[in-house]
Nucleic acid binder design. Structure first.
Lengths: 153, 153
DNA sequence: TCAATATAGTGGTATATGCCACTAATTGCC
DNA sequence: GGCAATTAGTGGCATATACCACTATATTGA
């Protein structure tokens, strides 16, 4: 039907596109593993950050996740709606809101965390533990403010 | 305000999350470069695939991009609306639709392609040409059907 | 002190992406 | 040939993510 030109790989030329493509693929694969929890991979990631960072402000989360603040707000909505996350105003600075897991949120996180461990194991089996570690380091470098500055300069 | 626990990097633990985070970062950076064209990075990527693959069917594009077919359909909408892409029914198989660039689409692609080259140069300067090549290879591996199969097994 | 500026978050709108249910067309098989 | 199973695409709905305009609160500097 569609001819494949041999040796011609249009998909691989652009780093940005390659990154998105890999993200879609791995996203799919993780999604399958997370499915029994009812959480999406991104949602588990978000719960994890809230869980690991002691009542972080939204700004703090957004910065850490390299995510737009308003995007974070939107992403939190379903989790708040489902009673997994709560936002509490900061005492000192009334502009600030802090995110915490509810009781249900902690329970759901524990449950999903077991699935995450399985996904991680599958990934490391398929990809190699070494390579996996290395990849995260590389990606982390791209996500760093220093890299952004260097790119923009 | 928010305390940073020294030496504790909650953001880096999960490969899937790390991938998404890097994608957001690089997405931002490319977006800035593409802005003058009025195209998003993803849209340029899509136009490129159509441009490089001679009237590909939607299925072919979706497979190559590791993207859900319906997601592809949705993503194409604004490009069709703006007159950059056209869908033409296949002669032989009436289920199939093929995508092509319109005249305007080709012109826009040429324009955006210059911006892409700039983004690529910036990326390779900031990240290293070697490392960049290596990264794309790694990402490509993750995007391959073989990897998906290996992960699922 | 108080006006100018900066910061945190919200809501609207748009694109990116996935799943499901559905339609239309094709292919396989008896 | 004709019906069952498969395949390509569409539309609806949900989440992911960005930008912009706006509000409320803090901070700063004259």
């Amino acid at each position: 039907m569609d001819e494949k030109i041999p040796g011609f790989e249009s998909w691989t030329v652009c780093s940005n596109s390659a990154l998105r493509r890999a993200t879609r693929q791995l996203g799919q694969l993780y999604e399958e593993v997370f499915a029994p929890s009812g959480l999406r991979g991104t949602q588990f990631g978000l719960l994890t950050q809230i869980h690991m960072n002691g009542k972080p402000s939204l700004k703090f989360l957004a910065d850490g996740l390299v995510m737009d603040l308003s995007a974070l707000g939107h992403t939190l909505k379903p989790l708040i709606r489902d009673g997994l996350v709560e936002l509490v105003p900061d005492e000192k600075d009334k502009r600030v809101k802090r995110a915490t897991l509810t009781e249900a949120g902690r329970a759901k996180w524990e449950e999903a965390n077991r699935l995450w461990a399985e996904a991680r194991d599958r990934f490391e089996n398929a990809f190699g533990a070494e390579a996996s570690e290395e990849l995260r380091k590389t990606l982390n470098r791209i996500s760093s403010p220093a890299f952004a500055e260097s790119f923009r300069r």
